[in-house]
Simulated scan of single mutants.
Amino acid sequence: MPVRVDGRLDEPLSRWLWLVKWLLLIPHYIVLFFLGIAFTVLTVVAFFAILFTGRYPRSIFEFNVGVLRWAWRVAFYGYGALATDRYPPFTLKDAPEYPARLRIEYPEQLSRGLVLVKWWLLAIPHYLVVALFVGVGAGGDDAGRSAAGLVGVLVLIAAVALLFTTRYLPGVFNFLMGMHRWTLRVAAYAFLMTDRYPPFRLDMGGAEPVPEPASTGVVTGPGR
Score class of each variant (00 low, 15 high):
A190Y: 01
K93S: 14
D142I: 04
L17K: 14
L122C: 05
M1P: 15
L162Y: 04
V65K: 00
A148Q: 10
V151W: 07
W120T: 14
M193L: 04
D10T: 01
V153R: 15
L132F: 10
G139E: 03
L102A: 06
L32D: 03
T194K: 06
A83I: 09
P99M: 02
V136E: 09
P211K: 09
I50S: 02
R15T: 06
L42C: 01
P213T: 11
A95C: 06
I30H: 00
L184G: 09
M204L: 11
S111Y: 08
W119M: 13
L92P: 01
T84L: 03
Y98T: 04
F133A: 05
T183I: 13
A81G: 08
A83C: 10
G221D: 14
L121H: 00
R86F: 02
R185L: 06
T165V: 12
I124F: 15
R196L: 10
G221K: 15
V172T: 13
F33Q: 12
A190V: 09
P213Q: 12
L154Q: 08
D142R: 03
F33M: 13
L82H: 09
R73N: 04
W120V: 15
I50E: 00
Y87C: 01
G223M: 01
R103P: 09
I30T: 07
L23E: 08
V129S: 05
V153L: 15
P222A: 14
T53L: 03
Y127Q: 12
R103I: 06
A138T: 11
G221W: 15
V136L: 14
G223P: 04
V134M: 13
L121T: 07
Y197E: 13
Y106H: 04
I124P: 08
S111H: 07
D142C: 00
L169G: 12
G54Q: 07
D203C: 08
R201A: 11
L122R: 07
S14Q: 00
L122K: 07
N174K: 15
